[in-house]
């Protein structure tokens, strides 16, 4: 069943229909939330909160956009809300450790895997160290594939600011990769 029908069924009172939507998108929302909040437990809370918020406001969903576009804005707000609520007290090490635990490694050769893991580790560390205002745009852009307009809309910042923050975020991540290679 497509999203439209699942939404209609949900609005008609079908709990299973919304459950199906949740199952369909839970991993995507999780992958959006995880780098922002930095740990699995909080990210799961964000996923749950996102779907409950979406369910509560489903009537206000205008079908001019795709359901997930609407959903990820909710997810982002929930994630940032969780981060602020927590007071940013989580250590970078914990973020790196927890994010790392959540990702599965694809099958590849040992050498390639080792190099990729080095790079990914460097990237995770750099991502965890990024200030929230830089982390959010890069996650939305690179993981969600959102364009500048959608990022601007989601973060409620001008497109020019999206560009500058993406640029700074990339610079920070690139420098982290360069530093890691220089260390070896």
């Amino acid at each position: 069943m497509n999203d439209e029908r699942l939404i209609d069924a949900t609005l008609a009172g079908d709990k299973n229909a919304f459950g199906e939507l949740a199952r369909k998108y839970q991993d995507r929302v999780y992958n959006l939330a995880l780098p922002i909040v930095g740990n699995a437990d909080d990210a799961l809370d964000v996923v749950q909160e996102t779907f409950l918020q979406a369910l509560a406001h489903l009537e206000s969903f205008r079908r001019s956009s795709r359901f997930y576009t609407w959903l990820y804005r909710i997810a982002y707000n929930c994630a940032v809300g969780a981060l602020r609520k927590r007071g940013r007290t989580t250590s970078v090490d914990r973020i790196v450790e927890e994010i790392g635990e959540c990702f599965e490694s694809p099958v590849e050769s040992p050498d390639a895997k080792s190099k990729r893991e080095d790079d990914v580790q460097a990237l995770r560390e750099a991502l965890a160290k990024l200030p929230e205002e830089y982390r959010a745009p890069i996650v939305l852009r690179e993981i969600e594939g959102a364009n500048y307009e959608r990022i601007a809309e989601t973060l409620e910042i001008p497109i020019g600011t999206v560009r500058s923050r993406l640029h700074r975020a990339r610079n920070a991540l690139r420098e982290a990769l360069v530093r890691r290679r220089n260390d070896f």
């Binding site: 459950g19 839970q26 992958n31 749950q48 994010i99 959540c102 990702f103 690179e142 991540l173």
Partner: peptide, 26 residues
């Protein structure tokens, strides 16, 4: 390269028991 790496790290899945927790919450 950064994009490629970030997208590779975006393969996290929720724990199996979470789906049930979410279902109940819904």
């Amino acid at each position: 390269r950064i994009r490629e790496l970030l997208r590779k790290t975006a393969g996290a899945t929720v724990p199996p028991e979470f789906s049930e927790r979410l279902r109940l919450a819904i």
